[in-house]
Design a protein around this nucleic acid. Structure first.
Lengths: 135, 135
DNA sequence: TCAATAGTTCGTATTTTCGGAACTATTGAA
DNA sequence: TTCAATAGTTCCGAAAATACGAACTATTGA
């Protein structure tokens, strides 16, 4: 079987739904954040180990397809490898501020998680409360 | 079987991942947008018909659970019905600007979709392009 | 020509989601 | 009080999406 060509949606076909779906998975968020942060293209195998665990090649390939087909990244074959760059300028032109606020929100969450691991000064106790009138 | 009480995450337990997952479904987005837009609580059965199609009660119940457990809405039993309000003030306190930018992006998308249905002035042809170096 | 590398595709197992049917809880009559 | 109506939940089987090992393809550099 031949390798199918990459499909990249045109800017005007990018949907909020698919962007949010693409970023609702922690592995994909980690990959996307890394691609955005680096200023040179990243190949897929850079991410065979992410979030402190190994990701199988086949799974990784699917994650890249989802990121690509949502419009978040652009993939290009260069010889034996695939180089990925973010399409954040395009996405930002279509949905101004969206990606920035999502990335910012992730950073807030990561900072909080880091703060919790350090001795815990005030220990903002993480409770799951119940609705007063339920039950 | 007794009805389980509603579970609402505490603010600090709300994660970006679950927020994005909750909003990566068009029915849930429609429900959430409506709840945010109204200034009084909405009961579930308001949404038995959404996006021009009927939603089965059992499915609707699951959608509400996902919105609730992601932290986007607060549900409270009032007699025979359940009243839902958005928790956007809380969510905005935790992740400033996030929800606003997502709602704004959805509005941009809806405007574009509406513009396409009107006779199509320039007919921004919606193409799915291929990567130049692939194939 | 061949081995190594990078990634894709296939097929199966697991997980998630959908939706009909049966159920629970509350209310407002009769 | 009983009873029907209403609002929603839960159960469970079907369908769809996801995960990942194994086999494959394509490119490159001995």
């Amino acid at each position: 079987m031949t390798v199918r060509p990459f499909l990249h949606p045109a800017i005007e076909d990018i949907t909020v739904e698919s962007l949010l779906h693409a970023l609702s998975d922690p592995v994909r968020v980690a990959i996307y954040a890394n691609i955005v942060a680096q200023d040179c293209a990243q190949n897929c195998s850079t991410f065979l180990h992410v979030l402190n665990r190994p990701i199988p090649k086949s799974t990784l390939s699917q994650h890249f397809r989802i990121l690509r087909e949502s419009g978040l990244i652009h993939s290009e074959r260069h010889g034996v490898e695939v180089r990925n760059t973010s399409r954040c300028a395009e996405v930002d032109a279509r949905f101004p501020g969206l990606m920035a606020s999502i990335v910012k929100a992730h950073m807030i969450e990561l900072e909080q998680a880091a703060a919790k691991k350090i001795p815990a000064r005030h220990s903002a106790k993480s409770t799951t409360k119940r609705s007063p009138r339920s039950a």
